[in-house]
């Protein structure tokens, strides 16, 4: 039997790796991929608690998280394609039109 703490530690470590990817990389696509990783780290925690508490709600919420991740991927990639149309703009610090 896998202890509950293992799931929480795995979720936390993956979330930290994803957060580091979001904050440290300049490439916008890698930032989107890191966000997917963070959403999945949350899913690990949800499923771990679902097993520990013997409650299906955790797995239902994991499905909703996957739905939100699919929406986020579609809209985020559409924005990146729109930015890439005229000239190559893949680094997030180059997109500074609204920066004060």
């Amino acid at each position: 039997m896998i202890p509950m703490t293992h799931f929480l530690v795995l979720g936390a470590v993956l979330f930290l790796i994803g957060a580091m990817g979001v904050l440290m990389r300049r490439n916008a696509i890698i930032i989107l991929l890191s966000i997917e990783l963070m959403l999945n780290a949350v899913n690990v925690t949800f499923v771990g608690f679902s097993r520990h508490l013997a409650d299906m709600t955790g797995q239902v919420f994991a499905i909703f998280v996957i739905t939100v991740a699919a929406c986020e991927a579609a809209v985020g990639l559409a924005i990146l394609i729109a930015l890439n149309r005229d000239r190559t703009m893949v680094n997030v610090d180059e997109i500074n039109l609204l920066k004060w």
Binding site: L23, M24, R25, R26, N27, I29, L80, I81, N84, T88, V90, N91, D93
Partner: peptide, 15 residues
């Protein structure tokens, strides 16, 4: 594949 990613490989990768 729709984007031009080859240029980004040669750029600075980290903030």
């Amino acid at each position: 594949m729709l984007m031009n990613v080859e240029v980004a490989v040669r750029m600075r990768q980290w903030h």
